[in-house]
Protein backbone atom coordinates (compact mmCIF):
# COMPACT_ATOMS: atom_id res chain seq x y z
CA UNK A 1 0.00 0.00 0.00
CA UNK A 2 1.74 3.24 -1.08
CA UNK A 3 2.07 5.91 1.60
CA UNK A 4 2.57 9.67 1.46
CA UNK A 5 3.16 12.48 3.96
CA UNK A 6 0.93 15.53 4.23
CA UNK A 7 0.66 18.70 6.23
CA UNK A 8 -3.02 18.64 7.20
CA UNK A 9 -5.77 20.63 8.94
CA UNK A 10 -8.99 18.83 9.95
CA UNK A 11 -12.00 20.54 8.35
CA UNK A 12 -14.77 18.11 9.25
CA UNK A 13 -15.21 14.69 10.74
CA UNK A 14 -17.94 12.12 10.95
CA UNK A 15 -18.12 9.06 13.14
CA UNK A 16 -17.64 5.67 11.51
CA UNK A 17 -18.63 2.47 13.28
CA UNK A 18 -17.82 2.12 16.97
CA UNK A 19 -14.33 3.60 17.16
CA UNK A 20 -13.37 5.14 13.80
CA UNK A 21 -13.73 8.57 12.22
CA UNK A 22 -13.80 9.78 8.62
CA UNK A 23 -12.02 13.11 8.51
CA UNK A 24 -12.02 15.74 5.80
CA UNK A 25 -8.50 17.14 5.64
CA UNK A 26 -7.14 20.21 3.93
CA UNK A 27 -3.59 19.23 2.99
CA UNK A 28 -0.92 21.48 1.59
CA UNK A 29 0.24 18.77 -0.81
CA UNK A 30 -2.98 17.25 -2.21
CA UNK A 31 -5.70 19.74 -1.38
CA UNK A 32 -8.91 18.57 0.29
CA UNK A 33 -9.35 14.83 0.83
CA UNK A 34 -11.27 12.38 3.00
CA UNK A 35 -9.41 9.81 5.08
CA UNK A 36 -10.20 7.15 7.66
CA UNK A 37 -8.74 7.40 11.17
CA UNK A 38 -9.03 3.88 12.54
CA UNK A 39 -9.63 3.58 16.28
CA UNK A 40 -9.42 7.39 16.67
CA UNK A 41 -12.33 7.45 19.14
CA UNK A 42 -10.67 5.10 21.62
CA UNK A 43 -9.48 6.97 24.72
CA UNK A 44 -5.83 5.99 24.31
CA UNK A 45 -5.67 6.28 20.52
CA UNK A 46 -2.64 8.08 19.08
CA UNK A 47 -4.90 9.53 16.41
CA UNK A 48 -7.62 10.94 18.67
CA UNK A 49 -6.07 14.38 19.25
CA UNK A 50 -4.85 14.83 15.67
CA UNK A 51 -8.28 14.11 14.20
CA UNK A 52 -10.15 16.78 16.17
CA UNK A 53 -11.52 19.77 14.27
CA UNK A 54 -9.04 22.48 13.11
CA UNK A 55 -6.02 20.59 14.48
CA UNK A 56 -2.88 20.99 12.35
CA UNK A 57 -0.71 17.88 12.03
CA UNK A 58 1.95 16.22 9.95
CA UNK A 59 0.34 13.00 8.81
CA UNK A 60 1.34 9.87 7.01
CA UNK A 61 -1.47 8.41 4.93
CA UNK A 62 -1.77 5.10 3.12
CA UNK A 63 -3.58 5.09 -0.20
CA UNK A 64 -6.75 3.05 0.25
CA UNK A 65 -9.27 1.63 -2.23
CA UNK A 66 -11.84 4.35 -1.75
CA UNK A 67 -10.55 6.41 1.19
CA UNK A 68 -6.96 6.92 2.31
CA UNK A 69 -6.06 5.74 5.79
CA UNK A 70 -4.19 7.82 8.37
CA UNK A 71 -1.32 5.67 9.62
CA UNK A 72 0.78 8.13 11.66
CA UNK A 73 0.53 11.68 12.82
CA UNK A 74 2.33 14.32 14.81
CA UNK A 75 0.29 17.25 16.04
CA UNK A 76 1.84 20.62 15.12
CA UNK A 77 -0.87 22.66 16.85
CA UNK A 78 -4.24 21.78 18.32
CA UNK A 79 -4.96 25.47 19.05
CA UNK A 80 -5.76 25.13 22.78
CA UNK A 81 -6.68 28.84 23.00
CA UNK A 82 -9.39 28.35 20.37
CA UNK A 83 -10.69 25.25 22.13
CA UNK A 84 -10.81 27.07 25.45
CA UNK A 85 -13.23 29.83 24.43
CA UNK A 86 -16.74 29.35 23.03
CA UNK A 87 -16.58 32.49 20.84
CA UNK A 88 -13.25 31.49 19.27
CA UNK A 89 -14.20 27.83 18.98
CA UNK A 90 -17.39 28.72 17.09
CA UNK A 91 -15.45 30.97 14.71
CA UNK A 92 -12.70 28.40 14.05
CA UNK A 93 -15.41 25.81 13.34
CA UNK A 94 -17.00 28.22 10.88
CA UNK A 95 -13.68 28.85 9.08
CA UNK A 96 -13.31 25.09 8.61
CA UNK A 97 -16.85 24.61 7.31
CA UNK A 98 -16.46 27.57 4.94
CA UNK A 99 -13.20 26.15 3.57
CA UNK A 100 -14.74 22.70 3.19
CA UNK A 101 -17.64 24.22 1.27
CA UNK A 102 -15.58 26.44 -1.04
CA UNK A 103 -12.76 24.03 -1.96
CA UNK A 104 -13.04 21.11 -4.40
CA UNK A 105 -11.51 17.73 -3.54
CA UNK A 106 -7.98 16.83 -4.62
CA UNK A 107 -7.14 20.26 -6.02
CA UNK A 108 -3.83 21.21 -4.41
CA UNK A 109 -3.93 24.83 -3.26
CA UNK A 110 -1.11 25.64 -0.81
CA UNK A 111 -2.21 29.30 -0.71
CA UNK A 112 -5.58 28.36 0.82
CA UNK A 113 -3.85 26.01 3.27
CA UNK A 114 -1.52 28.80 4.44
CA UNK A 115 -4.41 31.24 4.57
CA UNK A 116 -6.44 28.97 6.85
CA UNK A 117 -3.48 28.12 9.04
CA UNK A 118 -2.57 31.77 9.55
CA UNK A 119 -6.23 32.64 10.20
CA UNK A 120 -6.35 30.02 12.98
CA UNK A 121 -3.14 31.35 14.53
CA UNK A 122 -4.36 34.96 14.29
CA UNK A 123 -7.74 34.03 15.74
CA UNK A 124 -5.92 32.97 18.92
CA UNK A 125 -4.67 36.54 19.25
CA UNK A 126 -7.95 38.24 18.37
CA UNK A 127 -9.98 37.59 21.52
CA UNK A 128 -11.19 41.20 21.59
CA UNK A 129 -12.45 41.35 18.01
CA UNK A 130 -12.39 37.82 16.55
CA UNK A 131 -14.69 38.79 13.66
CA UNK A 132 -11.82 40.80 12.13
CA UNK A 133 -10.08 37.52 11.36
CA UNK A 134 -13.30 35.80 10.26
CA UNK A 135 -14.16 38.55 7.76
CA UNK A 136 -10.58 38.92 6.51
CA UNK A 137 -10.50 35.16 5.90
CA UNK A 138 -13.87 35.19 4.13
CA UNK A 139 -12.72 37.91 1.74
CA UNK A 140 -9.32 36.36 1.08
CA UNK A 141 -10.72 32.84 0.56
CA UNK A 142 -13.33 34.23 -1.83
CA UNK A 143 -10.53 36.10 -3.65
CA UNK A 144 -8.55 32.84 -3.96
CA UNK A 145 -11.59 31.20 -5.54
CA UNK A 146 -11.96 34.11 -7.96
CA UNK A 147 -14.91 35.72 -6.16
CA UNK A 148 -13.26 38.85 -4.73
CA UNK A 149 -16.06 41.43 -4.55
CA UNK A 150 -15.60 44.59 -6.63
CA UNK A 151 -14.88 47.37 -4.12
CA UNK A 152 -13.02 49.90 -6.31
CA UNK A 153 -15.81 51.16 -8.55
CA UNK A 154 -19.53 50.56 -9.12
CA UNK A 155 -19.99 46.91 -10.12
CA UNK A 156 -22.83 47.90 -12.47
CA UNK A 157 -21.76 51.10 -14.26
CA UNK A 158 -18.06 51.24 -13.42
CA UNK A 159 -18.54 54.77 -12.07
CA UNK A 160 -16.69 56.22 -9.09
CA UNK A 161 -18.13 55.60 -5.64
CA UNK A 162 -19.46 58.63 -3.79
CA UNK A 163 -18.73 59.25 -0.14
CA UNK A 164 -22.37 58.59 0.74
CA UNK A 165 -25.19 56.33 -0.32
CA UNK A 166 -23.45 53.25 -1.68
CA UNK A 167 -24.74 49.70 -1.49
CA UNK A 168 -23.43 46.14 -1.77
CA UNK A 169 -25.06 43.52 -3.96
CA UNK A 170 -24.17 39.86 -3.23
CA UNK A 171 -25.60 38.66 -6.56
CA UNK A 172 -23.68 41.29 -8.60
CA UNK A 173 -20.59 40.70 -6.46
CA UNK A 174 -19.63 44.20 -5.48
CA UNK A 175 -20.44 47.75 -4.50
CA UNK A 176 -23.05 49.89 -6.27
CA UNK A 177 -22.78 53.67 -6.65
CA UNK A 178 -25.55 56.00 -5.47
CA UNK A 179 -27.10 56.05 -8.96
CA UNK A 180 -27.23 52.25 -9.28
CA UNK A 181 -27.94 51.33 -5.65
CA UNK A 182 -31.62 50.58 -6.29
CA UNK A 183 -30.91 48.44 -9.38
CA UNK A 184 -30.32 45.20 -7.44
CA UNK A 185 -33.02 43.61 -5.28
CA UNK A 186 -30.50 42.26 -2.78
CA UNK A 187 -28.63 45.57 -2.30
CA UNK A 188 -27.47 46.28 1.27
CA UNK A 189 -26.85 49.95 2.16
CA UNK A 190 -23.22 50.78 2.96
CA UNK A 191 -21.38 53.70 4.52
CA UNK A 192 -18.12 54.87 2.92
CA UNK A 193 -16.29 53.79 6.08
CA UNK A 194 -17.43 50.20 5.54
CA UNK A 195 -15.92 50.13 2.03
CA UNK A 196 -12.59 51.37 3.43
CA UNK A 197 -12.84 48.72 6.15
CA UNK A 198 -13.54 45.96 3.58
CA UNK A 199 -10.42 47.08 1.65
CA UNK A 200 -8.34 46.86 4.84
CA UNK A 201 -9.71 43.40 5.67
CA UNK A 202 -8.78 42.16 2.21
CA UNK A 203 -5.22 43.44 2.16
CA UNK A 204 -3.86 44.43 5.59
CA UNK A 205 -0.85 42.58 7.02
CA UNK A 206 -1.49 40.57 10.22
CA UNK A 207 -0.44 43.24 12.73
CA UNK A 208 -2.45 45.99 11.01
CA UNK A 209 -5.41 43.62 10.75
CA UNK A 210 -5.36 42.88 14.50
CA UNK A 211 -5.18 46.61 15.25
CA UNK A 212 -8.22 47.56 13.12
CA UNK A 213 -11.01 49.16 15.14
CA UNK A 214 -14.11 49.68 12.99
CA UNK A 215 -17.11 51.61 14.25
CA UNK A 216 -20.03 49.40 15.39
CA UNK A 217 -21.97 50.49 12.26
CA UNK A 218 -19.16 49.51 9.86
CA UNK A 219 -18.64 46.20 11.69
CA UNK A 220 -22.36 45.40 11.48
CA UNK A 221 -22.58 46.34 7.76
CA UNK A 222 -19.51 44.26 6.96
CA UNK A 223 -20.95 41.26 8.82
CA UNK A 224 -24.25 41.59 6.95
CA UNK A 225 -22.62 42.01 3.48
CA UNK A 226 -20.27 39.08 3.92
CA UNK A 227 -22.92 36.85 5.46
CA UNK A 228 -25.09 37.25 2.34
CA UNK A 229 -22.20 37.20 -0.11
CA UNK A 230 -20.77 33.97 1.36
CA UNK A 231 -24.25 32.46 1.33
CA UNK A 232 -24.64 33.43 -2.34
CA UNK A 233 -21.26 31.98 -3.33
CA UNK A 234 -21.55 28.83 -1.19
CA UNK A 235 -25.07 28.21 -2.59
CA UNK A 236 -26.49 27.73 0.88
CA UNK A 237 -26.27 28.88 4.46
CA UNK A 238 -23.47 27.30 6.45
CA UNK A 239 -24.66 25.47 9.55
CA UNK A 240 -21.95 26.83 11.81
CA UNK A 241 -22.81 30.38 10.63
CA UNK A 242 -26.25 29.98 12.20
CA UNK A 243 -24.70 28.97 15.51
CA UNK A 244 -22.30 31.90 15.27
CA UNK A 245 -25.27 34.23 14.63
CA UNK A 246 -26.98 32.98 17.80
CA UNK A 247 -23.80 33.68 19.80
CA UNK A 248 -23.54 37.18 18.31
CA UNK A 249 -27.18 37.91 19.21
CA UNK A 250 -26.55 36.66 22.75
CA UNK A 251 -23.41 38.81 23.05
CA UNK A 252 -25.16 41.97 21.81
CA UNK A 253 -28.06 41.35 24.25
CA UNK A 254 -25.59 41.02 27.13
CA UNK A 255 -23.81 44.17 25.91
CA UNK A 256 -27.11 46.08 25.86
CA UNK A 257 -28.07 44.80 29.33
CA UNK A 258 -24.69 45.86 30.77
CA UNK A 259 -25.02 49.29 29.11
CA UNK A 260 -28.65 49.71 30.20
Amino acid sequence: MPVYNADAIVLHRILLGETDKIVTLLTREKGKLNAVAKGARRAGSRLSGATELFTHSQMQLAVGKSLDIISQCQVASSFPTLRGDLELLARATYLCELTDRMIEEREPNPEVFDLLLSALYLLQRAQERPDLIVHAYELRLLAERGYMPQLEACVRCGGALQRRQSAFSPSLGGVLCSGCRFSAQDAIALHAETITFLHALASADPETLLALAPSPAAAAETARCLRWYVRYRADRDLKSAEFLDSLRVQASRQHNVSRG
Binding site: A43, G44, G49, A50, T55, S78, F79, P80, R83
Partner: peptide
Protein backbone atom coordinates in the same frame (compact mmCIF):
# COMPACT_ATOMS: atom_id res chain seq x y z
CA UNK B 1 -5.59 8.56 29.28
CA UNK B 2 -4.63 5.52 31.38
CA UNK B 3 -2.12 3.56 29.31
CA UNK B 4 -1.53 6.56 27.06
CA UNK B 5 1.76 7.80 25.67
CA UNK B 6 3.09 11.28 26.56
CA UNK B 7 5.04 11.44 23.31
CA UNK B 8 1.85 11.06 21.25
CA UNK B 9 -0.32 13.43 23.26
CA UNK B 10 -1.46 16.54 21.40
CA UNK B 11 -1.03 20.06 22.74
CA UNK B 12 -4.62 20.45 23.91
CA UNK B 13 -4.37 17.27 26.01
Amino acid sequence: PAGGDLDYADQAT
